[in-house]
Each structure stands twice: as structure tokens, then as C-alpha cells.
């Protein structure tokens, strides 16, 4: 057997974070779970360790506390081979239109925090000479829409950051993956009416991320391929028409 690899999952108590961690653990990777909710992390860690027999450690991080990121990375028992950020905050669009503090939290949770954290790991991976960086962004970042443009703008920024990072580091032994999952059945979307053909379950997202990052070495993935078509159409609409749509 080859040397044991390690994945760091940031946002480890979310439905997608859990699924990603389980997909890696099922392939024999040891897992570092990071997040804010200490009790929730312990629950997920015990679950993954019991199911798979791999080692799982838990680490506290607040994605808005960017000043603490270096100490967080220093505190990990080992620099991971792969880091996956599934951090995100949907927020409430209508509230964000007038509540600047809420809009700021949405922007920082979806862009500033994840980008700075992955950027920090990129530098450490470069120093080591290898590493894989996975950012879960969103199809919402491909074109600003009335229903969620504060969230979408932050995701657009994150997507651009990942694209630029990839452009810079891919010749130097690093691999950067951008994931745009489309709709996912999670607690974040509980109660929403989601079209079945466009909606993935978290487990499928976890498996797709592992495959894209570790076996196929893809750059950008949609979990459900149909989203590539949907977004191509949405991107192609001229602005004069797009502004009249209700999306």
C-alpha cells in the first residue's frame, strides 16, 4: 500500500462536507475535519472513523476570522495533501439588499474567507512542491441574478480567484479544482422546491469531488453535467434580454 494521504475538509459539519469526507475516507485517506461547531465536528468524526476505520481529527476554525488562519494551519498535525473548502452561506437576498452587515457576512463567508484560506494553503503546498486545492463555488457565480446576486457576486469572486490561482500554480505541481454543484438537497435548501433533474444529493457531490480531484484531475466540474448546458444558455443571453427575465 502507498503512503497514507490526508484530506482537510473545511466546513466539515455541512451535508456536503460530510459527504466529501466520507468519500475520501472510503478511499483510505485520513481526514481532518474543520469547522465552527465543535460538538457537530465530533459527531461527524466519530461517524466517519467508525464507518471506515480511518483516523479522523477535528480542528476549530471560523471562516470569518481570517487573522487566525496561519495559526490554524500551523496547528494541523500534518499539512494535508488535499484541502477542500465547502464553506458557504446562502443568506437572504432581500435582507442583504438593505442590511449591509448581512450582505458583508454573505460576501465574506463565500469569498473572502474561503479565498484567503485556500490561498494560504496554496503557498504552503508550493513550498512543499505538491498539493490539491478544491473550492466549492456555485453556478450562482456565473451570472448575477435578481434572486441571489449578493451570494452570486461573492461566488463569482471565489470562482475567479480559483481560476487565477490555477493559472498561476498548475505549472508548479499544484492542482486546483473548482466545483459548481448546482442544486443540492441539504439543510441549506430544505423546504425549497428543487427540480429533480437539476438536483444532486450530497453523496453524489462528495463522490464527484473525490473523482475530479484525485482520479480524473479535472479543473472545473458541475456535479450534474446538464448544468454546463443550462449555464451556457444563461451566460449567452444578451443583457438586453437577460435584464427582463425573472431568474
Amino acid at each position: 500500500m502507498t503512503e497514507m494521504k490526508t484530506v482537510l475538509v473545511v466546513g466539515g459539519t455541512s451535508d456536503v462536507g460530510r459527504a466529501v469526507a466520507r468519500a475520501y475516507a472510503a478511499a483510505g485517506w485520513s481526514v481532518q475535519l474543520a469547522g465552527r461547531d465543535a460538538a457537530g465536528l465530533e459527531r461527524e468524526a466519530a461517524d466517519i472513523a467508525t464507518r471506515t476505520g480511518v483516523a479522523v481529527s477535528v480542528h476549530a476554525i471560523d471562516i470569518l476570522d481570517t487573522g487566525a488562519f496561519a495559526a490554524f494551519a500551523d496547528g494541523l498535525p500534518v499539512l494535508p495533501d488535499t484541502v477542500v473548502s465547502v464553506v458557504g452561506l446562502l443568506g437572504e437576498q432581500v435582507r442583504a439588499e438593505t442590511d449591509a452587515a448581512h450582505a458583508t457576512t454573505v460576501m465574506r463567508s463565500n469569498f473572502e474567507g474561503p479565498a484567503l484560506l485556500l490561498g494560504l494553503f496554496a503557498e504552503r503546498f508550493l513550498a512543499r512542491g505538491h498539493g490539491t486545492i478544491v473550492g466549492v463555488s456555485s453556478v450562482a457565480g456565473e451570472r448575477g441574478r435578481a434572486s441571489n446576486y449578493v451570494y452570486g457576486a461573492a461566488k463569482a469572486g471565489f470562482t475567479a480567484f480559483l481560476s487565477g490561482l490555477r493559472n498561476r500554480v498548475s505549472k508548479r505541481g499544484l492542482h486546483v479544482v473548482t466545483v459548481k454543484p448546482g442544486f443540492i438537497r441539504t439543510r441549506m435548501t430544505a423546504g425549497m422546491k428543487l427540480p429533480a433533474r437539476l438536483t444532486a444529493d450530497p453523496q453524489a457531490v462528495g463522490t464527484a469531488i473525490f473523482r475530479a480531484a484525485e482520479t480524473q484531475r479535472r479543473d472545473v466540474i458541475y456535479v450534474k453535467p446538464v448544468w454546463a448546458l443550462v449555464m451556457a444558455i444563461i451566460r449567452a443571453l444578451p443583457e438586453t434580454i437577460f435584464k427582463r427575465t425573472k431568474l
Partner: peptide, 15 residues
């Protein structure tokens, strides 16, 4: 639906 602990020596599984 989380598992908690398994002891392979005794076979007891807590879920």
C-alpha cells in the same frame, strides 16, 4: 444516522 464507535475485540457497535 451517525455511527459512534466500534470495538473489533468485542463486536459491540454503537450507532
Amino acid at each position: 444516522d451517525r455511527m459512534r464507535a466500534f470495538d473489533p475485540a468485542t463486536g459491540w457497535l454503537t450507532v
